[in-house]
Simulated scan of single mutants.
Amino acid sequence: MDDAATWPRSLQDVDRSDEALRAWVAERIQRLDADGRRSADTHLVTLDLPAHWDIQLYLKDESTHASGSLKHRLARSLFLLALVNGQLRPGMPVIEASSGSTAVSEAHVARMLDIPFIAVIPRGTSRHKVSLIEAAGGRCHVVESAECMSREARRLAAEQGGLFLDQFTHAERATDWRGNNSIAVSALAQLELEPHPVPRWIVVGAGTGGTSATFGRLLRYRRLPTALCVADVENSAFFDGWVQGDPSVTTEHGSRIEGIGRPRVEPSFVPGVVDRMIRVPDAASVAAARHLSDHLGRRVGASTGTNLVASAQLIAQMRARGENGSVLTLLCDPGDRYTDTYFDDDWVAAQGWDLGPWRAALERELPLGRR
């Protein structure tokens, strides 16, 4: 007698296994793993400050990833999450709402996986980023403002039978903050032989909130005394939402600093892991990007400038209190993506930004290279 026949008739058994699909998913996960093994870790760059301060400032240089920015880790993690969750199938297009850098990295990963990719980007995204998305095989779908991106991406996904990756919702859960591909684990390991191996501050910007969640969780998990500061920008809801304890806060306009700042507090922003927030004026972010670019001999993006201004503020306060220690922040992406914006004097003037006072303040408060 067949053993299965001995079960009561109320037992229901539905088999939806698809061996071909499992093989397709497994092969793409192998491609992601291979990409990770081919990728060397990003450098930790020391910025020289006066030796008698006994304060070290480090930049985790994420611009050296294959797709050129901090978002490379996130893109790989988002695709991996979608694959292991059974959300992706052969031929299914992936759609993302992105102001540029995430879309560039996701286009790179999508091409590696042979998956069609559409980026929903706001009008005004730098032409260089659009070119990078298209060069990686992605297609750009332009909307009028950042506020429209997610809604339009969701509509496109439904219309085309695709998957909306939704970085702003899934970033904090896609990244394995304790290990696999974690920027936080990497950065803390690189500091182990430095004069102050446990930093006093870690400074990051917020675009999705995924990076701050990754660092903040690991710091608490390891029971470290390091404090986490999030640097926010004008026209962004993160600062006011955090200060007021109100995740419903919104702004009327989008951020002018590409890659960070959002008109709403995104679901991936985890306020409980943030110890401090500093709102940085846009002119200061651009001035700091130019200040650091001059020192490094290569251009960096304005979001890196935002991080640098917040770091300079914390270092000034450490000095005032007679503290020593280290500060770690991020070099998010290369400045050659912004030749026609942040590094174009006419474009900067058209924004109404006066960089002079901020350049002077930075040269005084953060005299890079002076021993």
Rank of each mutant, 00 (worst) to 15 (best):
V142R: 04
G162F: 03
A171V: 11
Y342L: 07
V104M: 00
W24M: 02
S131K: 01
L296C: 09
L314P: 02
I133V: 06
S105E: 05
S326M: 02
L83S: 11
Q317V: 00
A213V: 03
S236Q: 09
A288L: 12
A284Q: 08
T46L: 13
S10E: 14
V327C: 11
A189N: 14
E62K: 08
L224T: 01
D246K: 05
R364F: 10
A350I: 04
Q317L: 03
D354K: 07
A189F: 04
A136I: 08
A103C: 14
P281T: 04
L44F: 11
D275F: 11
G261P: 06
G137F: 04
M112S: 09
E192R: 15
H295M: 04
D294P: 03
S186K: 10
L362A: 11
R220H: 07
R155L: 10
T102M: 06
R337G: 00
E172A: 06
L218G: 03
R22A: 04
I202Q: 01
L156A: 13
G179F: 10
A23Q: 12
P225V: 15
I315G: 06
G297W: 14
A103K: 10
V265N: 03
F79R: 11
T6S: 09
R73I: 08
V286E: 02
D61P: 09
A26H: 09
A287F: 08
E258C: 00
T208L: 05
C140D: 00
G245E: 06
D246C: 10
G322T: 04
L70Q: 14
D35V: 08
R256K: 12
L156F: 12
A206N: 10
R22M: 02
S99W: 02
S255N: 04
R37P: 00
R37M: 04
D166H: 11
G161A: 13
Y221N: 15
R16Y: 02
Q190H: 10
W24R: 02
Q160E: 15
F117T: 14
E172D: 14
A302Q: 09
T214I: 01
L74G: 09
L228V: 02
I202Y: 00
H108L: 05
S39T: 14
V230C: 09
T6Q: 07
R217W: 03
A23W: 06
T339Q: 12
D176R: 15
R256N: 15
S326W: 00
G254S: 12
A189Q: 13
E144D: 15
A146G: 15
V94Y: 00
G297N: 09
A119F: 01
T42A: 13
L296P: 07
Q160Y: 14
H170R: 14
L32W: 05
S186M: 13
H52P: 15
V143K: 07
G91A: 12
G245S: 05
A146W: 03
L11G: 02
D294K: 13
K71E: 03
D35Q: 05
G335T: 01
V286N: 01
R155A: 13
